[in-house]
Each structure stands twice: as structure tokens, then as C-alpha cells.
Lab assay of single mutants.
Amino acid sequence: MEVRTIKVFTTVDNINLHTQVVDMSMTYGQQFGPTYLDGADVTKIKPHNSHEGKTFYVLPNDDTLRVEAFEYYHTTDPSFLGRYMSALNHTKKWKYPQVNGLTSIKWADNNCYLATALLTLQQIELKFNPPALQDAYYRARAGEAANFCALILAYCNKTVGELGDVRETMSYLFQHANLDSCKRVLNVVCKTCGQQQTTLKGVEAVMYMGTLSYEQFKKGVQIPCTCGKQATKYLVQQESPFVMMSAPPAQYELKHGTFTCASEYTGNYQCGHYKHITSKETLYCIDGALLTKSSEYKGPITDVFYKENSYTTTIK
């Protein structure tokens, strides 16, 4: 009895394709271990004539594949690729409408935090270190965002349907971005203890939790000093293409032309909904596939993004 075979390709990165001759009487799992086709788990399936010449994702289970996976995804987590594939199996079914010149995501599976993050990423200057993220990001900007969303979920250790947080998501993504040249110098002034300067680099240099107003941050924000008295913390120097200011959701007025974009969060910790506000020729609110415009805006804002380049204080 002759062994019926077909020729397929296996890959971990969709760049390096490895030619395989597979036995049609055995499952993919018996031949390769966990195997995925377009995100779908085909591990328990036997090869079919229609699979001839198709590319299958496999887990990096030998040295060659491990090197290829690390170079593309910059992670050695053995569960990463499987999590990416199972997320992709959902995100490829989502709709990605162009809204006001940006790629958004039609609401499904509690994905409003991903839509808000995706919209924000198209408006701030950011370059990702893992080629996987950078490639998928370019495709997302062009309207094909399924891979990018699935990668975000995998890097953030999230599953489809789980509630997510924009600030946490951005923080994970910033860790995989090139923020080497970003720098922030802060000064804390206390009447009792004097003053202390701190220099922050990388992710810490672009994120701040405690106030939404970048102007206020430049002037000074009140913080408790270690001595128990009130101290003032203010920005001395900022070198970065953008800054992200966050605070627990509270009524906040966004003035046209003073910011790049913002995240609105309605609801409580267990259950809520994100919308995205962007400042173009007027203010726009993007909620999944829905767009509304207004000249002014007041609502429960939790993150505001500002364009920056270089700032030095005039406070002496």
C-alpha cells in the first residue's frame, strides 16, 4: 500500500517557510505537534488534498525554529505562539472599519479597549522592536488589523473576551517599542525636605499616572512627601515624541487643539466601556464603527496623549 502524501510549508514567522512532505494517514499533531492554519487549530486533523502548498504555523520545537521565533517575536515564552494563534482565530472574524481616516474595530468580545489602543497607536510616533509587531502594525494602518490585535493580546497575556485596560495595554506595548531616546527629568520640591531631581528613561519617561493635564504637570502637581507634608512635583525636561497622561476616570474637559487623542471610560472596574476622542479640525468621538463630532467635550476621561518633541522648564 502506497503512502499518500502532500507537500506543505511549516513556519513560526510566515517569513521562513520549511518544506514538509506530510503523510495523509496521520494527523498534523502526530507529525508536527500543535499546528495552526489561519489561526485555526488543526492539530487533530489529517492532511487533505486542499492543504497542498498551504502554510501551517507550528510551535518552535527545534533550534532553527526557536531562533526564527525569537528573532521575529522577541520572546522565548513557549506558550506565546499558541496564544497568538488562538487569538487570531477570533480577531480574523472582527470587522476593521476605516473611521475618520483611522483603522478602528467594530465592537465584539469586549474589544473596546483594543480599538482605543489601536486608534491611539496610529496617532503617536512609535516604532516597535519585534519585527512581528512592526509588520502587523503597518498592515493594521492599511486596514488589516487582525494579526496586530492578536499579537497585542498575546504580548499582554490576554484572551479574547476578557476586559482590558488601555493604560495597561499601552504599557505592555511600550515595553516592546523603541523608547531608548526618551528621557524625563522631574523635580520634587518640599518646604521641609528641599528639592530632589529624578531622571527617568524609556517607558517611565512617557507615562504618568495622577493627572490628565500635561500643562498642569509642567506647572506642578501636589504629591505627598515622605515627611508627610505636601510637596510639588513638576516637569523639568521632556525628550520624547509623545507623552501619555493618565488618571482614574473623572469628568474632564478636553479643549480642541490642546491634545492629540484621549480615552474615555464609562462604567466601573468590573464592567465598563471605552471610547476614543481625537482632536482634528474639530473633536471626534470614535466608538467602534461609530463616529460623532463636537466642538467641545466633557466626560469621564482616563488617558490623554500629547505630541511632544523637546521641553525644558522655565521655572527657576
Rank of each mutant, 00 (worst) to 15 (best):
E2S: 11
E2P: 12
V8N: 06
T10K: 12
T11E: 08
V12C: 13
D13R: 03
N16E: 10
L17M: 15
H18V: 10
H18N: 08
Q20T: 10
Q20H: 13
D23S: 12
S25I: 08
Q31D: 05
P34R: 09
L37Y: 14
A40R: 11
V42Y: 14
K44H: 14
H51R: 04
H51Q: 10
G53A: 13
G53C: 12
Y57H: 12
V58S: 06
V58I: 13
L59Y: 03
N61G: 10
D62A: 08
L65Q: 11
L65N: 10
L65E: 10
V67R: 13
E68Y: 06
A69I: 07
T75F: 04
T75M: 12
T75D: 11
P78E: 12
R83W: 06
Y84E: 09
L88F: 06
N89V: 14
N89D: 12
H90P: 03
H90R: 14
T91E: 04
K93L: 10
Y96A: 02
P97K: 08
G101R: 09
L102N: 09
S104I: 09
S104Y: 00
I105V: 06
I105Q: 02
K106P: 07
A108E: 11
D109L: 06
N110Q: 03
N110S: 08
N111G: 05
C112W: 01
L114C: 02
T120M: 04
L121R: 04
Q122R: 07
Q123E: 06
E125N: 09
L126P: 08
L126M: 03
F128Q: 06
Q134H: 12
Y137P: 06
R139K: 14
A142K: 14
A142R: 14
N147P: 11
F148E: 06
F148W: 04
F148A: 07
A150P: 04
L153I: 06
N157Q: 11
N157V: 01
T159V: 13
G161F: 04
E162M: 05
E162Y: 06
L163V: 05
G164C: 00
G164M: 01
D165S: 11
R167L: 05
E168C: 07
E168L: 11
E168N: 05
T169P: 06
S171M: 12
Q175R: 11
N178W: 01
L179F: 14
D180A: 07
K183T: 09
L186T: 14
L186W: 10
V188C: 10
V189L: 08
V189P: 03
K191N: 14
C193K: 15
G194A: 06
Q195V: 15
Q196C: 09
Q197I: 07
K201T: 14
K201W: 14
G202H: 02
G202D: 03
E204P: 10
V206S: 03
Y208T: 08
G210Q: 02
L212I: 01
Y214N: 03
E215D: 14
F217V: 06
F217P: 02
K218A: 01
P224H: 12
P224I: 12
P224Q: 15
T226H: 14
T226K: 15
T232S: 06
K233T: 11
V236Y: 09
Q237C: 11
E239F: 08
S240E: 05
F242W: 11
M244T: 04
A247Q: 04
L254W: 05
H256F: 09
H256S: 09
G257W: 01
T258V: 05
T258A: 10
F259P: 03
T266N: 08
T266C: 03
N268E: 12
Y269D: 15
G272Q: 08
K275T: 09
K280N: 06
E281T: 03
T282F: 03
T282S: 11
D287V: 05
L291C: 15
K293T: 12
Y297S: 01
G299I: 03
I301V: 06
I301N: 08
T302D: 00
Y306I: 02
K307Q: 11
E308D: 06
T314M: 14
